[in-house]
Design a binder for these strands. Sequence first.
DNA 1: TTGAAAGCGCTAACAC
DNA 2: GTGTTAGCGCTTTCAA
Lengths: 338, 338
Amino acid sequence: MNISKIAKEAGVSPATVSRVMTKNANVSEEKRLRVEKVIRKYDYRPNALAQGLIKTKTNTIGVLVADLVNPYYSSMLENCEKEIIRCGYVPIICGTLNDCELEVKFLQKMFDMRMDAVIIIGGKSDELVTDPDYANLINRLAESMPIVITGKVEGGDCYQVTLDEAEGINQSMEHLIALGHRRISLVGGMEYIKSTYDKRIRYRGILRKHGITYRERYVINSDYGIEGGYEGMEDLFKKNKTLPTAVVAINDYSALGAMRSIQERGLRIPEDISLVSFDSTYIVEAVLPRLTSISYDYECFGKKLVDTALKLVNKETLPDVQKVTPKLIVRESVRSLL
Amino acid sequence: MNISKIAKEAGVSPATVSRVMTKNANVSEEKRLRVEKVIRKYDYRPNALAQGLIKTKTNTIGVLVADLVNPYYSSMLENCEKEIIRCGYVPIICGTLNDCELEVKFLQKMFDMRMDAVIIIGGKSDELVTDPDYANLINRLAESMPIVITGKVEGGDCYQVTLDEAEGINQSMEHLIALGHRRISLVGGMEYIKSTYDKRIRYRGILRKHGITYRERYVINSDYGIEGGYEGMEDLFKKNKTLPTAVVAINDYSALGAMRSIQERGLRIPEDISLVSFDSTYIVEAVLPRLTSISYDYECFGKKLVDTALKLVNKETLPDVQKVTPKLIVRESVRSLL
DNA sequence: TTGAAAGCGCTAACAC
DNA sequence: GTGTTAGCGCTTTCAA
């Protein structure tokens, strides 16, 4: 079914059908009713490809996300979706399976499909050192399609809504130190990821400020999943005879793995080791003990991402960088040493 | 940038540029090189809307999922995505926030966008009694766009790839009964959801077969999230002086909530209460004790869904219903009473 | 091998 | 108020 057939059956021109559908022109009551009847009869809906082609607007916001399973990302995603829907747009999600090539491919595809804007959550823009090819791609696409990212693209013509990582690590460290912890380990993450890099820099700064010796073997590399947390923790145990009294996990997804490692060794949280994580997804409330964790206002974060994208669609001017402030939520996984 | 500009700059006709891009016609070496050079110069990519419009094929598979956060769904999603990508298509995901109206709206939108096929995971097709309006919608859309569902649409012209729920509950019940459990509770889910209904029917059948009295107050309604599991478990405690020795949770997302409720009362799993769940997402390995759980081969499930969709795109004939067989994975959350 | 032309389905400017 | 027409960007006959 298409607009011409509807027009023919209603005895009007395609233009009139279009006018009835879009509601932004006057049509005589009589013809309108006739057209509406035929539309209902066939449940006619206009072809979005044709509409998009002529209007150069598709009413879609693309959301590219590095990992669909990680609850941090799915929380972000859900909140972006809600806001996109609330604003009358259609959210189009693509997961990039933590694969850079796929990210680039899908980003291009979203451009090809003429999405009105794209939000990129995680992925290549998370890297500390921007890949110049990626920056070029972003710049090329951003000429006609606004791009909002949660990371950073050096020299990239796109907008950032990003977490204040330094503030997050700050709050968790100060909390631990205030409770008497001096041997604090940072488990998980990779140095080439900007958020992790920022955390580690600040971690050292805080230790120095409190006159605590920095121990390199308390900082453990590993990836951001459950397995990463487990292996990171195992690594920590292997590398240290003097264990830390507190561990800061890079996110609560990996904290799950860290907990398993700790508990398998018969150690208790928080009695033997305190544990703090980042993200405060549903996981922190689901495990025992509940995890003290850095929390973001996901609703607000999602809203900011989407609203930024939509303002850009409407050619409004915006700051290049917006920060989302984290907040430590104290639960049960930290013990006082005082 | 568009095909005419490229053509002009290369000194050829748009048709020739198209031939170069699609590679399915002969172009003289000389012109081809000239065109390719201009294409590279501008990183030209054809407008997917225009392509879709003329080819009546968009190379996209839509995936509609009821809940992005629930790890059962995100696992499904990830595996569908992988297979869609492997087959050279672009996965387009929409979450429907467990909202029926949204599901209908997005399904229509996917049709409007002329996706080559749509996979619907969860949502309205999960309901025991099919909404006739929904069936009509499915039938209308399915005339030109194959639809694959994980549930069931009575009288719907779509294809099912569905879990063998009866077999799942069968395995978990037989396992519990073999270990001496007689007081077994079923926590979570709603009767109007087909998968839950099927489980409960079979649950009664198995009890009868083993000569165990069915107790209605051991079957608890609640929704499918963490909160649902918690409240369901609380409800169970409230309703029963004689507690069950084992609980079967409707999924492992809700089992998280059930565990919390059990542990808050100072009861231990499995010493005081055994716990079994459905789905075997990452959660079952993340908690302590690890949950004995019904597992699906998500990779195979995802593949089957996608391959079914793609075969339909290619007009192959297929069985209306395909079953995915579950398998009980024994971990640490069930105690033997023998 | 190549270009001209038609047409996918729609909207919007224009003329009446 | 309404129909005609042009055109969005592409692919694919059809001729040459």
